[in-house]
Amino acid sequence: MSAVLDERADDRPRVKKPSPWAAPPRPVWEEEPSKAGLAGKGLVLGIACFAILFPLWIVIVTSLQSKKTIDEAGGLVVIPKGITFVAYQELLGGGQVQKAALVSVGVTVVGTLFSMTVSVLCAYGLSRSGSLGHRWILMTLLATMFFGAGLIPTYLLVQALGLMDTYLALILPSAVSVFNILVLRAFFMNISQELIDSARIDGAGDWRILWKIVLPLSRAVLAVIALFYAVGYWSAWFNASIYLTDQEMMPLQNVMIQLVQMQERPVGLQTQINTGQLSPIAIQMAVMVLALLPVAVLSPFVQRHFKKGMLTGAVKG
């Protein structure tokens, strides 16, 4: 069966695709680059990538080592010897870090959905040129980019609204990013007016046009903005540090400050550390990996859309 398929494939006319590793043909007017120039460029790029990846390598590798290897290396491990997931088993098997990770995931998912809904609706509502009042609303939003209210009044407001010690305090005050709304709006404005008009003639209202036409055409920018919001919620720790007083409620970043930066012992999982099977250093590194993993996995997928998302960010009247 497979042989037949292979033969079929061989019969097809082949267009040779250039390897993505190879340099495309150079225009005739351009000089060949010098060997030294190429080497220099490679070196600088190499150093830049190394400076970013090497620290991450150490953190990830050390989190996967046994107590013995870590003790032999005198702390951090550069060259791994075997792999053990004991630190992760311990962290995710209950206790403080597991709870914090779940809190972070929950706040990030709920917050991102909420922010995206609010922002997309607002961006579409402002994207149809000449609609009533859109200029005023836009100015109201834009003004906030020039003058921040300040930490203290915001804090007093959150307190007065009764949001202290609730997860709403981690979502509502930072739910809307005017910049993100502007990017979405610029993207929606570029969608062909004829397409929208023809849908309207067929009887579609604004809700249906947004859902059936605008959103499917805007997947790229939606992915970028959702990533921005999600990263914002995932990385946030300051609001939790001032609006939450209950240590049990803290999200992952705040627990990371306690465990890794302040070198405190994690609550609820001291069995293995005390019995000497698990290095506290591995635990610290594993907490860091938990914090960086979702971001490191997601952002490269969205990468090819970044430029588009940033480019359309220009403010249009």
């Binding site: 809904t117 607002c122 609303i137 109201t140 939003l141 906030t144 300040g150 509502l172 709304i181």
Partner: peptide, 21 residues
């Protein structure tokens, strides 16, 4: 409908950006 769509975002901005001012 368009105006209605902007209401949630505008409300959030008014509450969390303008009232603190």
């Amino acid at each position: 409908t368009l105006l209605l769509m902007t209401v949630p975002a505008v409300l959030l901005v008014l509450v969390f950006n303008y009232i603190p001012i």
